[in-house]
Amino acid sequence: MTAVLSIQDLHVTIGRGARAANVLRGVSLEVQPGEVRGLVGESGAGKSMLGRAVLGLLPADAWIGKGGIAFAGRDFLTLPERERRDLLGRQIALIPQDPMTSLNPVKRVGDQIARVLQRHLALSRRQALQRATELLAEVAIRDPQRVLGLYPYEISGGMRQRVLIAMAFGCDPSLIIADEPTTALDVTVQRQVLQLIERLRERRGAAILFVTHDLGVVAKICRTMTVMHAGRVLEDGETADVLTRPRHAYTRALLAATPRADRPADALRPVPPALIESLWSEAHRLDRLSIVGRT
């Protein structure tokens, strides 16, 4: 079976010359069709940067030094711009992190959903709006007809995230990059949104690369997971295995730092600074060995 997403030895650097900073240092990972893979790591681990690289959303001064991104067996990086744009939004979709800033403030919700559908599916405006109504119903928005006519500022954060989820699933993509989709929401809404993503995935069968720093979320919905730190993959495997028998010291430390219901709060231990220190110095040693970042 061809992986829906295959990333090979990806190096991404921001800036050039003396101010160059490596953000991805040879990341490899695969997502199989229908698989939900958690991508975890602390802030600065490069997990969001990885998602952005796949979506073509790297910052203007970031560049890919080495490595490849393949989508369903097609080399994504050498794909002509036009063909890549036809895949983005259609086969690869994004659920963004912040629902408050991810919708256009001066366009009606219905407009924004319909435009994506019209872009990729041969639909008339009417058909697209009809489809948008169905999508909103599917993400459990009551009175979808009315919500279509509202502006983003008129609906709650949780509702906006549902709209964005509806937009992501709208064209039945085979891969969804969920970039910390619950981080900006409050806890009760988080649960609903997770259940919603889970339900839609079961029904529509998209693979999901779920970027998060929350191991609880990973345990709940991801079958496989990848642990990143300092732009490198430290550990990778079935979620159940990684969480019960972590091989890397960093994963063990992360687990020890995660609150759990079956453990007293005073059992929580922060990730040891010495460990972080040694991981970073190893990353920097790799930087010195490779020529990436010095060109």
Binding site: L87, L88, G89, R90, T101, N104, R119
Partner: peptide, 28 residues
């Protein structure tokens, strides 16, 4: 802004994004 960046990840070309997503916001 995020909404304009995300439009790129939805397969819209830059001129279309500038005119249809960015311009109405910049006009105000």
């Amino acid at each position: 802004q995020d909404y304009a960046q995300i439009a790129r990840a939805r397969g819209f070309a830059r001129p279309a994004i500038l005119l249809r997503e960015v311009f109405p916001n910049a006009l105000i």
